[in-house]
């Protein structure tokens, strides 16, 4: 890797690092507010996912990679999304019982 590329790489690393530190502070601050269920969880998850996205895009160099690499990353994201969504299809609908359900 040439001297020039070194230079241009360090700057975004620094910016991402600062962004991650700021988001960490936001995590701590947000934890002190009580948004009520399920909003507290969703806020925390949203901040965590933003941090993960920064790491994947910049530190793992997915930004600027080939379409195949991006496809592989999205496959993983979609896999996790399926896991969460279908598990929640259980937990989120447990409160609805047959008794509550409208009768036909």
């Amino acid at each position: 890797m040439s001297e020039h590329e070194h230079h241009s790489l360090w700057k975004p690393y620094g910016q991402v690092l600062v962004a991650l530190l700021v988001l960490t502070v936001v995590t701590v601050v947000a934890a002190n507010f009580h948004f009520g269920t399920p909003w507290s969880d969703l806020v925390a998850l949203f901040i965590a996912l933003s941090k993960a996205a920064l790491v994947v895009a910049f530190f793992m160099h997915v930004k600027g990679s080939t379409r195949l690499i991006k496809f592989a990353v999205w496959t993983g994201v979609i896999g996790i999304a399926i896991f969460f969504a279908l598990t929640l299809s259980d937990y989120a609908t447990r409160v609805i019982t047959y008794v509550d359900a409208p009768r036909m």
């Binding site: 259980d90 447990r94 609805i96």
Partner: peptide, 8 residues
């Protein structure tokens, strides 16, 4: 498991 999830 929720009956609705079971259906899906």
């Amino acid at each position: 498991q929720s009956a609705y999830a079971a259906l899906v």
